[in-house]
Write a protein that binds this DNA or RNA. Sequence first.
DNA 1: CAGTGGTCTAGACCACGCT
DNA 2: GCGTGGTCTAGACCACTGA
Lengths: 249, 249
Amino acid sequence: MNTIFRNSPLPRYYQLKEIMREKILSGEWKPGDLIPSERELSEQYGISRMTARQAITELVNEGLFYREQGRGTFVSRNRITQQLTKLTGFNEDMRARGYKPGTKVLSARLWPADETVAAHLHIRPGDKVFRLHRLRMADDDPLALETSFVSFIGCEKLLEDDLNNYSLYYLLETKYGYPPLEADQELEAGLVGSEEARLLRIAVGSPVLYIRRTTYTERKQPIEYAASIYSGHKYTFYAHLHREQLISK
Amino acid sequence: MNTIFRNSPLPRYYQLKEIMREKILSGEWKPGDLIPSERELSEQYGISRMTARQAITELVNEGLFYREQGRGTFVSRNRITQQLTKLTGFNEDMRARGYKPGTKVLSARLWPADETVAAHLHIRPGDKVFRLHRLRMADDDPLALETSFVSFIGCEKLLEDDLNNYSLYYLLETKYGYPPLEADQELEAGLVGSEEARLLRIAVGSPVLYIRRTTYTERKQPIEYAASIYSGHKYTFYAHLHREQLISK
DNA sequence: CAGTGGTCTAGACCACGCT
DNA sequence: GCGTGGTCTAGACCACTGA
């Protein structure tokens, strides 16, 4: 995959984004490297400068590149930034923090989407989705409750999978061909209800983090909506921030 | 301010952004409203469609608008969200989301750093820092309490500054020459104590977000350590995640 | 100075939503 | 069918960087 197909249903800027992502993953472009100029890329791939620019701009917004006027565009050096805006599943996240991840499936069934779920997955309310309710553990200690709603043609086959031992994201990618690529996530503080408190083995009214995530596969197609509750005193969220423009009064 | 000046040093897309932000702040455009189409805006302000589109795109990225293909562009429902990877001060954050920021300085004095503050600012415990305690408001409603510890040679001059009307980051950058460029931030859920509850006008034991931030200027030099408490039900964090490698089992 | 990103134009065709 | 946003082009001039 090193040329842009003019007849592809995928937009040209999108194809270029994937090509450039691949160059970073393969190590051809390393952190701090100067990438080819917008004019060079447009000539090399036979697209207009504005189209090449759109691909670069989106990767800048994702934190993969940064631009310096008059100098060029560079691969981001800051590995922390990339690490912390990285899309990971629970298992990866826990391993990165040095904990042994554990999962207990509480229920797995087909379920008619309510309005919230339908809106996030771009389907109609009442459409059947695969609903997965899991207790997540770190070093055998309950840490979070996660309810996932998964929607794709044939998603009912997930009913037969072993979700206690295989990660949902792993199955989506390898068995069903829907790699989770991007996600939008929201996070806020709240209090735990009685049922959740019992499962997490914490006191009713303890502080918790509510995390809601919509996960997308190729072409921004939503594949999963998940609502999670993380035990407040056990989980801290880290981020590295960087400035983009002038500070105003 | 309702026309775009062709000779202005400010880019046209930027002028249009400010005009549209103003329309939201003034209430002319309300959450859920359909805004004029890209073609209408370009005609109305005498700019090309691509320029109008750039202004809209940036406000979409900031969360102020959302687009629906074939339908139009709409003003987002008023939910306070923060881009997790963009370093902004409180005022910028609020304005970008269509709220009027307000600040009340509760105290400002020199203070000997404790061990936590000293560790984050790379100084010795007991060294004098500028300690600033502020109540932060959105549309005149208390939203957060923020305690900042600032350390640089000459930081005692901040005692004479008008911090009710100028942002700390603005002064650090323009008056003292220490632009905040990066930050590390951590965030967790907790319960509010009685003193904080009173100032935030919420019930004791309400859920809150504890946010701790170390801010750096050039060469990763720490300039500020801040501990904040955000009212839980009023504030949501937002992050866009993207994948970098394969999902593991 | 040449090369870079930043901004801007005046078109074009497409896929989609709605009526 | 018509209006919307989504994509794309082939130019243009600017401000900035570095040799």
